[in-house]
């Protein structure tokens, strides 16, 4: 028995929804990694000009934030890619894809 409380069975084709999601993914999900690169570059530039007394700790923060958020963004891209296929996978396939996407960066 399926739980369809969140995704309603309807009449529209999967590709129409895929278009909407894909557009969103291109506009936002795919731009965030570039934003992150810009943030890291800007912070790294500032760190280089800090007294060395402070730079190590700040650099550690920058690196930690970058790696963590990059992992989260990569995860979103995986989720976006599932939607961008414009074909709704069956339940089991989607379940595995999602789980694999989480396993991939642990």
């Amino acid at each position: 028995m399926h739980d369809n409380s969140l995704f309603v069975v309807g009449t529209i084709s999967a590709s129409a929804l895929g278009d909407t999601i894909a557009k969103e993914a291109q506009n936002q999900w795919h731009s965030d990694p570039h934003n992150l690169d810009g943030l890291k570059a800007g912070l790294n530039s500032a760190v280089q000009q800090l007294p060395s007394t402070l730079s190590g700790t700040v650099q550690q923060f920058v690196n930690d934030f970058d790696s963590n958020y990059a992992a989260l963004l990569n995860q979103r891209i995986v989720i976006g890619q599932i939607l961008e296929k414009k074909v709704a996978p069956d339940a089991q396939e989607l379940d595995l894809q999602i789980k694999d996407s989480f396993d991939s960066f642990q």
Binding site: D3, A88, D95, I98
Partner: peptide, 23 residues
């Protein structure tokens, strides 16, 4: 998460849908 509330929904059912929303 609003995907399911669109006027034009999609066949995203059961375990897969839950895993998607959870993720």
């Amino acid at each position: 998460n609003d995907v399911g509330n669109l006027s034009s929904p999609i066949v995203f059912l059961g375990k897969g849908a839950n895993a998607f929303v959870d993720a």
